[in-house]
Computed example of a mutant assay.
Amino acid sequence: MSDLTLERNFPQPPEKVFAFVTRTEHLLSWWGPEGMGLRAHALDFTRPGAWSSTLVNAEGGLHKMSGEVIEVDPPRAVEFTWGWHDDKDVRGHESRVRFEIEPDAKGGSIFRLIHSGLVDEESAANHNRGWTSTLRKLEQLAGA
């Protein structure tokens, strides 16, 4: 199994960053890598429960993932399970994603994304590319 950790700094306080990464109206603005759009979603990380999203790429290819929000600790953390679906909508290997937010010394926040339990290094590298692209969209939204 492989893990991935990405860290970003934001000028906003933890409460505001937590809202950006958990509330549906904000998630819709940054969820998914650059160049992909949301085809369908049930995105709400403010409470425990099921979530899902289907991304569509420029060629019309669909990429569905789903899971369960298992921890919500405002404004410090949210954690959820993650699994990709195949072309027959069968959910595959389950991993975990955790967003951690802590205050920094300047009144802003340190945001940490930890994706754990990935199948192997290749999967970690693919998720690193996807999350890095996705976080660029979050940085633009949050004014980082």
Rank of each mutant, 00 (worst) to 15 (best):
G117S: 04
P75E: 09
R76T: 12
L38I: 14
E121G: 14
D120N: 15
T81L: 03
H63Q: 04
P103K: 11
M36I: 05
E102Y: 05
P48G: 05
P48L: 06
V21R: 00
G32T: 08
L118N: 05
R47N: 06
A42W: 02
L55V: 11
R96M: 11
T81M: 02
S133I: 01
A124V: 08
G143F: 10
V72Y: 02
D86H: 12
A144F: 04
T54F: 02
M65I: 09
D3F: 03
E94C: 10
I70K: 06
A142P: 02
P13F: 08
S2G: 03
G143S: 13
P14I: 08
S116Q: 08
K16Y: 02
H93Y: 12
W84P: 13
D89P: 14
G49T: 09
Q12C: 06
R39S: 12
G117W: 00
L4F: 11
D87S: 15
E68I: 07
K106A: 14
R23N: 05
D89S: 15
V21I: 14
R96W: 12
F18Y: 15
R98L: 04
G67V: 10
P14F: 13
F99T: 00
R8P: 08
W84L: 14
H85A: 14
S2Q: 13
F45A: 03
V97F: 07
L113Y: 02
G60R: 07
R47P: 07
F80K: 04
I101A: 05
G61Q: 09
T134A: 09
F80M: 11
S66W: 11
V72W: 03
G60A: 04
N126R: 12
T132F: 01
R96L: 13
H26G: 02
S116H: 04
R8C: 00
A19W: 01
G61R: 04
F45W: 12
H41F: 13
K16L: 08
D44W: 11
E68F: 07
F99C: 01
G37N: 04
T24G: 03
R112E: 00
G37K: 06
